[in-house]
Design a protein around this nucleic acid. Structure first.
Lengths: 223, 223
DNA sequence: ACAAAAATATGAGATATCTCACATTTTGAG
DNA sequence: CTCAAAATGTGAGATATCTCATATTTTTGT
C-alpha cells in the first residue's frame, strides 16, 4: 500500500472531490491510499482505522466460515464506502476486503473524525442511502439463492458481467460469489454450451444466444 | 386496521415516546395504527404512504418470486422501522409486510414529513444504524445459506426461537424462512428426533440434547 | 527460466434437496 | 357446529449440488 503525499495527494483530492458528501471540511483529514491488485485493504477480523471511500478500482468482500468455505459477499466499486460498519458499531466482525485491480481510496481516520461524521447530516444521508441499497441487494441475493437453481443465477451473472459479448470471469471467483462448487459451475456452463447459448473460445465464452439467457435471468426479478 | 384517536392515541404516544429519535417535534404528525394478526401492513408491490415504527407485535417481510416461490426475508419486531426504503428511494420494489401477532405501529406520513426526516441528524443516525444491522444480517444469512446445509441452519433457528425448551414454530413459515421445501424440513427434523436431539410431543418438539444442536449451530459463526 | 502455486478440467459416486401424489388433522369463518 | 382451507405428515423417485481424486495448463515469484 502506498500513501500519496503533497502534490499527488492534492491532485487526487481536487480531481475527485468528495467535499459535497460532507458538511464540514473533510479534505484536510483525508489520506489518499493506493492498493495494488490482490492486496488486502482490510484483513478479516481486524478493525480498520479508517473509513474508506473508493475513487478508482474494484474490490471484493470476503468472509471465511468455520468449515473453511469462503464466501464472496459482494463486489465493491468506485464511490462505495468501506469500513462504515466499524464506524457505526463498536463491536463488529470485520469482513476481509481484497482488491481485484489497482485501487485508490480516500481514507478518513476514524479516531479524528468519528464524532463529526456521526453528527453530519449530509454524510449520514448519503450513507443511509448507500446502506439501504446494500441491504436491499443482499436481501435480493439471499432470497434468490434459495429460490432458484444455479442455472438462473448464473445466466443473470453472465449477462451482468459480459463484456462485448464475451463472458470472461474467473471460475474460482464466481464459485465463491454464487456459492457453488467449482465442479458444479463447470457442469452448468457445459450445459449452456451444449444448448448453444454459449460457445467456448480458449478460456472465454462467447454468448451465442441472448434470448434464452434473458429468460433464465428474468425469473429472478420480482413478481 | 384501526387508527387510534384522542385519548388512546395520546396514551400510546406518551407510553412509548419516540421523541428522542428525532430532533424536531414529530409527535403531532404520528398516527397510531393497530393491525390484527395476519393482516398486511404493506401490500407487496404497493408504495406505502407512511414510515412505520413498530411499538408492539411481530411481523414478517415477504417477497414473491416469478416461479411462485415465496421467501420470508426477515422478521420484524418492536423498535424496527418499516417502509424506510420507500422514504429513501423514489423507485423501489416494495416487499409485503404481514403481522404474525396483533401489532401496533406509529405511522409517520411521508408526504408531510419526508423533507424534515431527511434533514434530521438524530433520525438519520438511528436509521443508519438500523440499516447497517439489517445489511449485516442479510449478508450473514446469505453466505450461510450457501455455505451450510439445512441441518446447521435449522439447529441455529431452533435454538434462537425455542421457548422454555420447546420448539413450536410453524413448519410452513420456517420453510419460507430457511428456503427449503416442506418435505425436506420434516426430513431433517425427523433426523434430529432419531438422533435424540429433539423429541416430538404433539405438534411441538422438546429439546432433549442442547450440546449437539449448539455444535451444529456453532459452525455458522465466523472463523 | 524454473519451480511452486493457482486455475482449469473431468469422471464417478454420494448427499442434500425438490417435486408430486396423497392422507390426516387442525383451524377459522360464518 | 360445519365445512373449507390451512397445516401436518409420509412415500418414492428425480434433480441439483457436493466431494474427492487426479491430470493438465497457466500464472507468479524469484
Amino acid at each position: 500500500m502506498k500513501v500519496y503525499k503533497n502534490e499527488k495527494r492534492k491532485d487526487y483530492l481536487k480531481e475527485h472531490s468528495i467535499a459535497h458528501l460532507f458538511s464540514f471540511p473533510i479534505e484536510e483529514f483525508i489520506e489518499v491510499h493506493e492498493y495494488q491488485r490482490d492486496e488486502w485493504i482490510i484483513q478479516e477480523g481486524t478493525r480498520p482505522d479508517f473509513l474508506f471511500f473508493v475513487i478508482e478500482g474494484k474490490a471484493k468482500i470476503y468472509v471465511t466460515h468455520h468449515n473453511g468455505k469462503v464466501s464472496l459477499i459482494n463486489f465493491i466499486n468506485a464511490n462505495d464506502y468501506i469500513g462504515e460498519m466499524e464506524l457505526l458499531h463498536e463491536v463488529y466482525y470485520t469482513k476481509g476486503i481484497q482488491t481485484s485491480t489497482k485501487t485508490i481510496c480516500f481514507a478518513i481516520p476514524l479516531h479524528r473524525c468519528r464524532t463529526q461524521l456521526l453528527e453530519d447530516v449530509t454524510f449520514l444521508r448519503e450513507l443511509t442511502k448507500f446502506l439501504s441499497v446494500k441491504a436491499t441487494q443482499m436481501a435480493a441475493k439471499y432470497s434468490q439463492s434459495l429460490a432458484f437453481p444455479l442455472e438462473n443465477r448464473l445466466a443473470d451473472f453472465i449477462l451482468q458481467t459480459a463484456d462485448e459479448g464475451f463472458y470472461k470471469e474467473k471460475h474460482v471467483t464466481v464459485c465463491d460469489f454464487l456459492g457453488v462448487s467449482y465442479r458444479h459451475l463447470l457442469h452448468v456452463l457445459a450445459q449452456f454450451c451444449d444448448k448453444g447459448y454459449l460457445q467456448k473460445e480458449g478460456r472465454h465464452y462467447r454468448i451465442q444466444q441472448y434470448q434464452p439467457l434473458y429468460e433464465l435471468a428474468g425469473v429472478l426479478r420480482n413478481k
